[in-house]
Design a protein around this nucleic acid. Sequence first.
DNA 1: CAGCAAGGTGAT
DNA 2: ATCACCTTGCTG
Length: 707
Amino acid sequence: MAHHVFQLPCDGDGACMRCKVTPPTEETLTCSTCATPWHVACLASPPETLASTLQWHCPDCSGDPLPSASVAIDGSSSELFAAIKAIEADESLTEKEKARKRQELLSGRVEEDGEKEKEKGKEKEKESSVLDVLDGSINCSFCMQLPDRPVTIQPLEQGVIGFIFKAGKGFSLLLMDYATPCGHNFCLKCFQKWIGQGKRTCAKCRSTIPPKMASQPRINSTLVSVIRMAKLSKSNVAAGPLKVYHFIHNQDRPDKAFTTERAQKAGKANAASGKIFVTVPPDHFGPITAENDPARNQGVLVGECWEDRLECRQWGAHLPHVAGIAGQSNYGSQSVALSGGYEDDEDHGEWFLYTGSGGRDLSGNKRTSKEQSFDQKFEKMNEALRGIWSLTNRSHKEKRSSYAPEKGVRYDGVYRIEKCWRKVGMQGFKVCRYLFVRCDNEPAPWTSDEHGDGPRPLPAIPELKKATDVFERKESPSWDFDEEDSRWKWKKPPPPSKKPVNAADLEERKRARKAIRKAHNTSIRERLLKEFSCQICRQVMNLPVTTPCAHNFCKSCFEGAFAGKTAVRERNKGGRTLRSQKNVLNCPSCPTDISEFLQNLQVNRELMDVIESLKQKSEENQEPAEELSEEQINGSVENADLDSGDGETGKKNENADPEGDSQNPPLDCETERSSKRRKVDTAQVTNDENDSPSSILQMQSSEGDIE
DNA sequence: CAGCAAGGTGAT
DNA sequence: ATCACCTTGCTG
């Protein structure tokens, strides 16, 4: 702890901020959380094993000292440096090859030598041109890497300036400072570090950082998606299709949504909630899969957004439309919502500290009280959360967090509760506390990673020292990482539902399940290009524009979608308000209001470059189309038919066996099939990757986990 | 069936 | 930004 103060990373120029020298690449380690480079020689406790360099977390991210488990001293850090020196000394290697080997070593991907690898190296050089397009132009100004959880110092929108000028002259001078278009990018961590040192100017160009950005940086989802796309295209392995999360607009809301008279007058707050579109029971644990989604046949995907809690409810991600915790005290909790309502909360994205409910006097139908007036106890929902089924879907609408969506509610994936305890909260009363750690097979909406979570060490929680009533999971978790498959899955069946899906739903499900058997014999190249398809015309984007909510369209399609609409509506005729209102123009794919973005439409240069470079590559390099074999196609269809008997597509039945009575085989069969499929399947079938538990698992009896 | 609950709205 | 005034669904 004491030496924490003296631990510093390398600065923007690559110089160690502690010893001031600029270490060669091989003497630096890059944090796998914040992507900041650190000078190994200046680390108080460098990783000791090759394996631990794979998932190395810097002192800032891991909480220093490192968890004891990873600090087994066996002298292999010297082994690591010996290996690096050997690479340096190898005269048969070019500088580029050396760099690659060093990187492989540090990232843990050590490959065999030989011709094969040389070939690979050549390929990689070609592919890297795609990422090179991005390199430099959007790198973090501190660590010089592609930014992790990118934040961008953005120029003020013109509309905003206008508004404030109107509001008062006093602001105009202030605005001149902030209005400098800077646009430089940083990793969230790097940026926070900079701010933490009291800096308020851009590290690169010295523009003033707007105070709002300094205190509350928001992740730039546009960049997140550009980087992830570039990585996917670079890896040249279809790591699954780019997900298109199609927002179901309100016109699709069933009549039931606005039933009462007042609801029609005054809006949703007073409406009955609409139809639930998914066929999961209210006490369903775990992700919602394609088979529970007859309407869209894709399940609830990580990153999916809804306008509000009522709509989120309709997709089954979080059923209570006000409460933050869904669950039953004697059973467990299915989901939580983050919204910044409790000031003790702490959000770190992949893990967060959650506060229980209660402790407030809400009598008299108050909804505004944030005052705590008594202690929270492990009862009701707090007890539910403490329950044995510490697996939780996280929907997210947090005001204070950098990880929150710009607007609306977002599904962020599966989290596991690792510990809970009580402590005295900021308001002086006891609160229940929960440590949630992400464990989803899909990358979080804020990372540009191609892959989901791996198992990670628990973060250090200083407040645990003062905690009381600490509870930890005693048995092995039901939802856990399978090393063989490299993915999360149910190791033990989830709890059975008490409320089964009714028969009508089953019928509906069958009707809705029209086979989506499409020919899968598109070339990698074509599939990659499909990653970059416009969400309106479904063709490869021409002049791509990326909305602030990270959806992509051709410029012309996008403009076409708003043809004839203006940003200002004259007056609300039938409504009660007489104010002239701003016309809300929603993104075609989600509820975000993009009217300001529309007024200053910019082509996404980075994305366009990536597309161009891909197109060029595919022309140059007439690679033969890699096709699915008949066997593979037939195999999956056959299995589907066997499983459900209704001509199901393969994907929905990876681990499903809804009508069957076999107990375990679905899980075991699933892995081979899906991993094979993942390599060859791509964009056309957009709703892949439903690796989650199926209904059969819920129907199985589950003893053992219940206390 | 009472009593919560991390909501939503237009008005100030 | 904050407020008052509502709503609904769910748990116990």
